[in-house]
Nucleic acid binder design. Structure first.
Lengths: 111, 111
DNA sequence: TTTTTATTCAACCAAATGGTTATTAACTTA
DNA sequence: TAAGTTAATAACCATTTGGTTGAATAAAAA
């Protein structure tokens, strides 16, 4: 995998298990065992997936007793969103025009 | 790499060479040789990168004389954007609050 | 027709990926 | 202290990735 940060983030996201883990963490912190629960996979494999997410900065690790609860850090997702920005107009062109038209109408008739 | 579509797309994007190619194609169609120009890499390697982008549906291939011009298809990027949607509020929360506050002010003092 | 240009394909290789099992470490509980 | 739980690490393996070179294909140009 390429070593630049954005590539590391996108690569981390390019796996349904890891995206599933992020989805779970969007609802709040979770332990490794909790994160592993939906998957038919060894804890070692889960641990590796978590390491990939961590290297990408997408999750952070805490420590409570024998647990290492993970929490989501959305910052790298923001970077992905910003990268998309340059292309967004390409699929939103039609909507943009409508949006501007609506703003134009509002400027005329509404306060 | 995982076989689901979104994973295929994100994986295709997780490489600076391939993102560079997309950036070039955002300015319009380009031949393989044109796309290869910035990279110190064999044509065969370029061809493989293009195949990855094509499998992800990010580019389409034309045919003109001996050239196979590629063009960008932004549709899969839209899918990435839609996946991000669920997380967007997490990094935009503060801005949202500010935005709502400004709208509130505007509703009061401005037309 | 021969040669050149543009591109792909085939075979190969080293390194990375994604899984496994077995072991180790840290902490809790009996 | 001993046993159980949680999680990471080490060693291993098969497959994939991302590059190479060399040959093949297709069209254009000479």
């Amino acid at each position: 995998m390429a070593s630049d940060h954005l590539s590391t983030v996108l690569n981390a996201l390019a796996d349904p298990t890891r995206r599933g883990m992020l989805a779970r963490l969007a609802n709040g912190e979770a332990t490794v065992t909790e994160l592993a629960e939906p998957y038919d996979m060894s804890m070692a494999a889960i641990s590796k997936h978590l390491k990939v997410l961590e290297r990408a900065g997408l999750i952070e690790q805490g420590r409570e007793a024998q647990y290492r609860p993970r929490k989501l850090n959305p910052e790298p997702l923001k970077e992905v969103d910003q990268w998309l920005e340059d292309y967004r107009q390409m699929w939103e062109a039609r909507f943009d025009r409508l949006d501007h038209y609506l703003r134009h109408l509002q400027g005329k008739s509404d306060g």
